[in-house]
Structures are given as structure tokens and as C-alpha cells.
């Protein structure tokens, strides 16, 4: 495996809502900040992967617009995932393993304040068994809370608008760019069955396997940031990852949350606040999909 590190991270002001700018305009200064922080330009990026959801924008191919924030001329090597930005980071990490490019950009955006996100997510469930039940995230959250014997949540945490960008670099290039690169010592993502009825909702098998594969338990963890919308999700994740203490976000930026967690965990290593950190992202109903990244100095 090629040594790959996170060397820069930037995000929009936490807790934004009712953003008036276009998604591209929201991303522009965030990508600028991630680049400026380590003194490189868009021309230094060898691969770009973006993440967003057209159902948030309510327009087909909405994600194509956000590429305009990358200065994609002459044409660049890029890709898109319809997932949280953490999965864009994963694809960028895989791309750097190919060995022919040394710097990659993963970015993510989501403007949640233009639709009823609970409705959007209910419709994204499987169309035969779940969507007709109109299972919104709060209903699913309540089911899972009961499964772990916790008080069911009564309110859906408000979805917020956000953008984030992470820059990855390989080997010596990472050492050139920053004094303390946050080396990704392990990264893995796993998925549980889509139908909650066949899962033991009191546990997260996919988070446990992803954590094992990423090597969370190989050495002490100084700080961990996990994507948990509700307190019971944090408990399930702590159990799955074998962590005694985790941090989360006070806000709920769909599509960006996981990338922010991993970026924040990486920042702790880059800034010297931690030697070993963990970042986690999730997607799907009741923590169905989980991605875990371990960063080391």
C-alpha cells in the first residue's frame, strides 16, 4: 500500500441554513481555503472526487454544476459519488493507490434547506416494503433507539447546509506540503442489509467490521469523531468501534457530515493535538452503511 495522508481540510461555517448562494458558490471559498492552507492551486490536483445528492437540489445532474468550483479546464480527472463526502475521500484514496498521481481533492456539499429532507429520505428507501410506510429518519431512529433500550428521540435534528473539502497527498509530496501529515493508516467501509427487519438494530455489524479492517483497536485512540444523529447511534458506534469516548457534530449537514468528521479528526493530527485519531461516516437507515478512517502522525 502507498502511504497516503490528509494534508488539508476546510468547511463552511457550521450551522448554515437557508443559504441563498448556489451550491457551487458555497463550495468555492471552501475549496480555496483547503488549497491556500497548504499553498497549492487547483492545477496541483491530480484527481478530484465530489459528493452530493441531486435529490437535495431537486434537479437532475445538479452535481455537474459543482465541478465549476474546481476550475475544470483543461479537462480534469474527476469522479462523483451520490454519497456522503467521506466516500468521495475513499475513492480519492483508492485513486492515489494507483501511483500515478500524488495529490487528490475530495469535496462534498449539501443544501438541505430547500426541501423537506425527511420526505426525501423516506422516498429513497426501497420502494416495495419501506417507502410505502413513509418511514422518515425520525421513525427509523425511534425504532433503533427502542432496540437498544434507549429513550426514543422525539425530534429530528435539523438538517443544515454545508460544504467541505479535504486534500490528500501521497508519500513525500504529503511531507512537502505539511509538517505533520495525517497518515491514513486504515480506511474501510461496509454495508448492512438494506431492510432493517433482517438486521439486529441494537448493533452495527458493518461499523464493527469497518472498524476492525481500518485497525481502530491496533493502538490507543486520542480522539474520535463519529456521525451520529441521535445519542443512541453514538452508543451503538462506541460499542461497534470499541471506543470509550467519541465526539460528534452539533449540526446535521446531510452529505457532508462524514467528511467533516474525518477532516476534523485529521486536523487534530495535523495540528498536533492528537497522534492517532478516528473519523466515521454513515449513510442509509439506522446506520446501514459505515466508513471508518484511522489517521496517525
Amino acid at each position: 500500500m502507498r502511504d497516503v495522508a490528509i494534508v488539508s481540510f476546510a468547511q463552511s461555517t457550521p450551522g448554515l441554513t437557508d443559504v441563498e448562494e448556489t451550491e457551487t458558490q458555497l463550495l468555492f471559498p471552501v475549496i480555496n481555503e483547503a488549497l491556500d492552507g497548504i499553498g497549492i492551486t487547483r492545477k496541483d490536483i491530480g484527481f478530484t472526487c465530489s459528493a452530493s445528492c441531486d435529490y437535495l437540489a431537486g434537479a437532475p445532474f445538479a452535481f455537474v454544476q459543482t465541478l465549476e468550483a474546481t476550475g475544470a479546464w483543461p479537462p480534469i480527472s474527476e469522479s462523483h459519488v451520490e454519497m456522503d463526502g467521506a466516500w468521495a475521500l475513499y475513492e480519492a484514496w483508492v485513486r492515489l493507490q494507483h501511483g500515478d498521481v500524488d495529490v487528490a481533492l475530495a469535496f462534498s456539499s449539501g443544501i438541505c434547506s430547500r426541501a423537506d429532507i425527511s420526505e426525501v429520505l423516506a422516498i429513497e428507501l426501497d420502494p416495495y416494503y419501506l417507502a410505502p410506510l413513509w418511514l422518515d429518519p425520525l421513525s427509523l431512529g425511534r425504532l433503533q433507539a427502542e432496540a437498544v433500550g434507549q429513550e426514543p428521540p422525539t425530534e429530528q435534528p435539523k438538517y443544515t447546509d454545508a460544504a467541505a473539502a479535504v486534500i490528500l497527498a501521497a508519500g513525500d509530496r504529503a511531507r512537502e506540503l505539511v509538517g505533520r501529515p495525517a497518515w491514513i493508516s486504515g480506511i474501510d467501509h461496509r454495508t448492512d442489509a438494506h431492510y432493517p427487519g433482517v438486521r439486529d438494530l441494537s448493533k452495527s455489524a458493518s461499523a464493527r467490521i469497518a472498524g476492525e479492517q481500518a485497525g481502530v483497536d491496533k493502538a490507543p485512540v486520542d480522539v474520535a469523531y463519529v456521525s451520529a444523529q441521535y445519542p443512541h447511534e453514538a452508543l451503538i458506534l462506541m460499542d461497534a468501534l470499541g471506543l470509550k469516548h467519541v465526539f460528534g457534530l452539533a449540526t446535521n449537514p446531510l452529505m457532508v457530515s462524514g467528511l467533516i468528521q474525518i477532516g476534523t479528526a485529521a486536523d487534530a493530527v495535523i495540528k498536533g493535538d492528537a497522534s492517532r485519531s478516528v473519523g466515521h461516516a454513515t449513510a442509509g437507515p439506522c446506520l446501514q452503511q459505515n466508513l471508518v478512517a484511522v489517521m496517525e502522525s
Binding site: T22, Q25, S113, R114, A115, D116, A131
Partner: peptide, 18 residues
Amino acid sequence: FVSQKVDLDYKVVTSPVA
């Protein structure tokens, strides 16, 4: 066949530039 009538409402926001 199962008929599912779905509609989603979106707010169209005009950016300050537009």
C-alpha cells in the same frame, strides 16, 4: 402492481447574483 404517488416540494432560491 402497487401504485405509489410521490411528490416532493422544493423551494427555488434565487442567488444574490441572479
